[in-house]
Nucleic acid binder design. Structure first.
Lengths: 232, 232
DNA sequence: AAAAAAAGAGCGAATGTTCGTTCTCAATTA
DNA sequence: TAATTGAGAACGAACATTCGCTCTTTTTTT
């Protein structure tokens, strides 16, 4: 389809003549070749994401991805050894971005505000990240793929384990401070909050015309109901 | 794999000789042939469900399904004209079962109890329906498939539209009665409850060792938080 | 610094396999 | 006998991946 927006061989980094007179291994790290590799990998991942969102991991063919990336199969296979490796790279990046949102929790004075922020930020990121709602769709695809693809399941496990820990420690600390009185076992409380939040994220409300702000009272009500802060 | 647990041709209904002396068209409806057709269709759907849960809609081949059903491709294609038609039949059945749970809502005195029941019944049905947790896994698969398969999307739309209406009318009635004071717009409230409930269903908690009863206070807290009953 | 050699990058046709579906023919039922 | 049902081989398309080749960049040698 989109055949040649970029020249066949990216020249992006060719103009500025880097001082290749230096013989040290810095040349190796920043050589034309090494830089090009990163650019190409990014290009492939972007194309693959676009194709996978459109047709699913199984539905998108390597040829589709090659076309979208403006690259031949032979070239693409120099950067990723298999379709499977592409899927894994994309899943890891997707889940990592989610996990990182939780790191901002400590910036909030109380746990309720922090949780609401986590929910809203997820919705924002998954629905308007860049141009389209690719991320929310990927979420569903990844969930399904994880059921039968062991490597993908492991990636999910890894990052979702991190998320669970972060959530758990934040809630545990708040409880220790006497800030909240959760309705149940901390583990279950954290898992339920995560599951319910994920349900909202996957619905992709913004794509259906519901503004992110409208979800704020919903997330807040959920957090208050499950965590029962002393102030309420 | 499981090659021949059942005989190649099911004899389940062959033994009891039905009175084929009657020449009216009732014979057509209940003839050996017509009965056999239903049995075979059920057998195929069961096998297909099993395969799809194991490998996904795209990952399971028609040969897999044929083997599991103890049937040749030629035979199977007499009952379903395509893989696509199998998928659609399964999706429809799966979503219909979900929608029917909502019909039991009117049996409860108040909306909170009714909602909690709906959530728990979904979890029960999706996780322990029959033998394994096939139904919860199918949920994820169907969500992903609906993104790119128009026919599946339409099936989901149909039944989820019904569910939305049922939920909306139940909540609307409770509000009219002054029983509750929801935190927001009724449409959004219903959609959020459904999304959050779905999140819990897809997590398949019972398969991870969390008993269904443990989820009851979670669902109740959610319903109370979002709907705000006067009694609370 | 120039020449030669090696390594890397890209292309696109080719490969072997898998898959959904169809076809032909035999067996069973009406 | 006529119609339905089933088996299983066969078909054509699609797919992930590889191969042989050319061109460019980097490294080594002179």
């Amino acid at each position: 389809m989109v055949d040649n927006i970029l020249p066949k061989q990216s020249k992006l980094l060719t103009d500025d003549k880097s001082d290749s007179t230096c013989g040290c291994f810095v040349t190796k790290l920043f050589s034309k070749r090494a830089q090009n590799r990163e650019v190409q990998e990014a290009r492939i991942l972007e194309a693959a994401t676009s194709c996978f969102v459109r047709a699913g991991f199984r539905g998108a063919s390597m040829n589709d991805i090659c076309s979208e990336a403006g690259m031949s199969p032979g070239a693409l296979y120099r950067y990723f050894p298999s379709k499977e490796s592409l899927i894994e790279a994309i899943v890891a990046g997707h889940r990592k971005a989610s996990a990182e949102i939780l790191d901002r929790m400590s910036g909030y004075g109380n746990i309720i505000d922090a949780l609401v922020m986590v929910g809203l930020d997820h919705v924002r990121q998954k629905s308007a990240n860049g141009v389209d709602d690719a991320s929310a769709r990927l979420f569903a695809e990844v969930r399904a793929e994880a059921i039968r693809n062991e490597a993908v399941a492991a990636q999910c496990e890894l990052y979702e384990g991190q998320m669970r820990e972060k959530l758990l420690s934040a809630i545990g600390a708040a409880k220790a401070r006497g800030e909240i009185d959760p309705v149940g076992d901390l583990e279950l409380v954290a898992a339920t909050l995560a599951a319910m939040g994920e349900g909202v994220i996957m619905r992709n409300f913004p794509a259906q015309g519901v503004p992110v702000e409208a979800l704020e009272p919903m997330f807040r009500a959920l957090a208050v109901a499950i965590l029962r802060p002393a102030s309420a």
